[in-house]
């Protein structure tokens, strides 16, 4: 589905990503872990198309298309969804308005008919239960006055409505209590299908108790220094990152 080859990216002249290689296939869940400042969020933002980052080398293919040539909105329309670590507030714009316009924009891009108000509403109702979101939050302005947990749930709800091919969850577990974490994780798990893929960017192992990854990668200093299966996540939880970093250093 997505193939990242030797990806290098800068921000303000500082190199953050220093040669990322990663392939994610349909139906897979990949976890990207690593200490603070290793470049995890940068990777997520670069895939989504944030222009603050300059890609200096490498390529990203998404279902065969050169992703780096597309603006962020077209990447979204191609089926990439980023659940933000810090979802922004947009005063005066209701969640429903945002989602309806977003969904129809994506459908239009794909040559599908736009949904009318009734069709949209029934879709939304169905998806709402997935993350136990109250109807009240639909009418309120996007993320305005939402609690931390509500914001994260709202991201997953948007993901459920937009049905992406590749979902990237950027630190979706940060700031969540255990109940909210369970709700969010269950939502993500329910949305999983053989046709889509998920990249989970996280700091801690605990989210991976709910969203079981097929692969775990350790990102350090802009590179993936170790990959493994879900047992790697548990090992990291017990032993920290230092041993992986040392191991990688020996290889150089």
């Amino acid at each position: 589905m997505i193939e990242i080859k030797n990806l290098h990216a800068n921000i303000d002249g500082r190199e953050i990503l220093k040669g990322i290689n990663l392939t994610v296939n349909k139906g897979e869940v990949h976890a990207i872990m690593g200490p603070n400042g290793s470049g995890k969020s940068t990777l997520a933002q670069v895939i989504a198309g944030r222009e603050d980052y300059e890609v200096t080398k490498g390529e990203i293919l998404f279902n065969g298309k050169n992703l780096l040539e597309l603006p962020a909105e077209n990447r979204a329309c191609e089926g990439i969804f980023l659940a933000f670590q810090y979802p922004v507030e947009i005063p005066g714009v209701s969640n429903t308005t945002l989602l309806k316009n977003a969904l129809n924009s994506i459908r239009k891009y794909r040559g599908e008919d736009e949904l009318d108000a009734m069709e949209f509403l029934s879709l939304v109702k169905k998806k709402m239960s997935l993350v136990e979101l109250s109807e009240d939050l639909l009418r309120r302005s996007v993320n305005e006055g939402f609690s931390g947990g509500e914001k994260k749930r709202n991201e997953i709800f948007q993901m459920a409505v937009l049905q992406p091919k590749l979902a990237i969850l950027d630190e979706t577990d940060s700031g969540l209590d255990i109940d909210a974490l369970r709700i969010v994780a269950n939502g993500v798990t329910k949305l999983k299908s053989p046709e889509n893929a998920t990249i989970v960017v996280t700091h801690y192992q605990r989210l991976l108790n709910y969203i079981i990854p097929d692969f775990v990668h350790v990102l350090y200093d802009g590179k993936i220094i170790k990959s493994g299966d879900k047992s790697l996540a548990l090992e990291l939880e017990n032993k920290g990152y230092d041993w992986v970093i040392e191991e990688a250093a020996e290889l150089v």
Partner: peptide
Amino acid sequence: DKIFYLNQRGLSTEDAVNMIVNGYCK
């Protein structure tokens, strides 16, 4: 960051700005 958020949801920059401004004037 607001524009990027809306871009990421599939809206063009023009539409994103319109949406933010309309919300601001609501």
